[in-house]
């Protein structure tokens, strides 16, 4: 074991922190067509199963005094519902199922990604960019449908001095279009970085002397990742609510 590690050390430590993110077909073959069932498909499917188990199977008894699983479902419901109501306003309650979908998917995908040897779907920009663009498009279309051209008032800071307003409008416009970028990169970046760091520490564990430290570091990182998994889902959801509020009430 030790000689093996030293052998690896001689050829340089073997770090492949990004290999865990490789998309590969599950049912053989090399080509990844749009319909191919890959590890992404599997873990997306497991996320759906997790959501169904939490919110449908868990609440199937409809008990007035809830069981534990029903409590979790109700807790998630209350958490997101209150967020939508408080941040986006009462008239945004119609978007609650949509926001709940985003939150439950991200939370479940993040936590499933923490299972060792699993594939983390939310670490891929392909996934988070789609999520962020869905929010961006929804918010933009909704803003124009609800407010017409008044939605452009979002970029025209009427409380600022007139001379500053064009400059502020440019800044606001840029920041508006940067939203989906930061929205998606924040989630994927956090998740990816944490998983990659764990893998790097795992690579160091090949050296017998360092391995205890490495295991400790992995444990600590794992704890941090559990936190990040929830917080990033929360951040993504609350930002969605904030953007939604901008679309419904564009005045500053």
């Amino acid at each position: 074991m030790a000689t093996e590690a030293h052998g690896a050390e001689e050829g340089g430590l073997v770090f492949h922190p990004m290999d865990q993110f490789i998309v590969k077909p599950l049912l053989g073959g090399d080509a990844v067509h749009w319909y191919t069932i890959t590890n992404v498909t599997l873990w997306l499917f497991l996320a759906v199963i997790a959501v169904v188990v939490l919110l449908v199977v868990g609440t199937s008894r409809r008990a007035v005094v809830p069981s534990r699983s029903q409590s979790i479902g109700e807790l998630a419901y209350g958490f997101v519902y209150k967020m939508v109501e408080d941040v986006a306003g009462k008239d945004a309650v119609g978007f609650f199922p949509y926001i709940m979908t985003l939150f439950m998917f991200i939370v479940c995908a993040n936590f499933l990604g923490l299972i060792p040897m699993s594939f983390t779907t939310t670490s891929h920009f392909a996934v988070t960019v789609v999520l962020a663009l869905l929010v961006f498009v929804t918010v933009t279309v909704l803003g124009f449908v609800k407010n017409g051209t008044k939605f452009l008032g979002l970029f025209w800071v009427s409380s600022a001095p007139l001379a500053l307003r064009p400059i502020l409008a440019v800044i606001e416009l840029i920041s508006y279009f940067v939203r989906p970028v930061s929205h998606s990169i924040r989630l994927a970046g956090n998740v990816m970085a944490g998983h990659a760091v764990i893998k790097v520490f795992a690579g160091f564990a090949a050296i017998a002397v360092i391995s205890p430290v490495s295991v400790l570091a992995i444990t600590a990182m794992y704890g941090l990742e559990v936190l990040v998994s929830f917080i990033q889902a929360y951040v993504f959801t609350i930002l969605t609510c904030v953007y939604l509020k901008d679309a419904l009430h564009p005045s500053h």
Binding site: V23, V32, H33, W34, Y35, T36, T38, V40, T41, L44, T121, H124, A126, V127, V130, L131
Partner: peptide, 9 residues
């Protein structure tokens, strides 16, 4: 493989 991921997502 973005097409694949986006489709399944």
């Amino acid at each position: 493989n973005w097409g694949n991921q986006i489709f399944w997502l």
